[in-house]
Simulated assay, not measured.
Amino acid sequence: MRELTTDHISQQFNAELETLRQHFLTMGGVVEKQVSDAIQSLLEGQGDLAEEVKAKDKTVNQLDALIDEECTRILAKRQPAATDLRMILSIGKAVSELERMGDEAKKIANHALKLINEGESPRGYVEISRIGQMVTSMVRESLDAYARLDIDLAVSVAKADRKVDLEYKTAIRSLITYMMEDPRSIGPVFNVIWILRSLERIGDHSRHLCQHLVYLINGVNVRHVPTEELEALATEDKKV
């Protein structure tokens, strides 16, 4: 496990940084469960589980506000530099990605409830299962990368997003064709399409999470770097 934090004269400063990190990982765990539960609620027809996903949105928002307040307080009080500053800035941005993942999980739960209450869609569940598995793995591994400061895992997750995008485009084309052939399916299939869209967006946010981690570790801004160039820049040695 890589270590980036430094020992400060103020033990309180060390404690503040560790608390910030732990709160971030706690929020990540809540969001990860939100995403997996949202998918499960649809595939297994569990309306109660979908309602639990929606209820967790309040917890995610509370943690978002708490972490934002902690980042602001540390910046104002400690005036951190170098690695410490990058950690705070990186976590501040990464938290926004987690909050948006939670929003997308809530959307999935809402559409799942519609499908459960109105009857299953005739198509799209296989695609949701397949893409859902890919995306939940991305969320889990992006958080593991942050916990272990594992830049290789971060790069791997970022690359996986391309596969999700390809699967998403293929699924959408298939579902649109199906709706054209059977207009009666338009209502339920549209709910499936919106779920797939949310899954694709969660994959994007997982990729962004890993890009923020690269910045934390190496000080390289790869937010707008093409995926094929990411690995070279991410592993570039930087003195901090």
Results as ranks from 00 to 15, higher is better:
193 I>E: 02
124 G>S: 13
153 L>V: 11
181 E>A: 14
185 S>H: 02
200 E>W: 11
5 T>W: 07
23 H>L: 06
240 V>Q: 12
13 F>K: 01
224 H>M: 02
21 R>S: 13
195 I>C: 09
108 I>G: 06
46 Q>F: 07
88 I>F: 08
115 L>M: 15
151 I>K: 14
194 W>D: 08
166 L>G: 05
221 N>D: 15
172 I>F: 03
130 R>M: 05
134 M>Y: 04
48 D>L: 09
1 M>S: 15
189 V>K: 00
183 P>V: 03
158 A>F: 01
19 T>E: 11
57 D>A: 11
215 Y>E: 05
120 E>S: 12
38 A>C: 10
7 D>G: 06
40 Q>L: 10
19 T>Q: 15
135 V>Y: 04
71 C>N: 02
225 V>K: 03
10 S>H: 08
54 K>S: 10
171 A>W: 02
26 T>Q: 15
86 R>S: 04
59 T>D: 15
139 V>S: 07
9 I>Y: 09
116 I>C: 08
117 N>T: 14
73 R>D: 02
16 E>M: 09
190 F>N: 10
205 H>W: 06
159 K>T: 03
15 A>P: 04
156 S>A: 15
154 A>C: 11
231 E>W: 00
17 L>E: 02
5 T>S: 12
44 E>H: 14
148 R>W: 12
45 G>I: 12
173 R>L: 11
109 A>I: 04
113 L>P: 03
209 L>A: 03
151 I>R: 15
164 V>F: 02
228 E>S: 10
124 G>M: 01
81 A>I: 15
46 Q>A: 09
23 H>E: 15
201 R>C: 12
79 Q>L: 13
207 R>W: 03
116 I>A: 03
236 E>Y: 03
21 R>L: 12
25 L>P: 14
216 L>S: 02
95 V>E: 10
123 R>P: 05
27 M>Y: 07
93 K>V: 05
217 I>R: 09
179 M>S: 07
129 S>H: 15
221 N>K: 11
153 L>G: 14
40 Q>E: 14
233 L>W: 01
140 R>N: 10
232 A>S: 09
77 K>T: 15
132 G>M: 01
60 V>Q: 02
44 E>G: 13
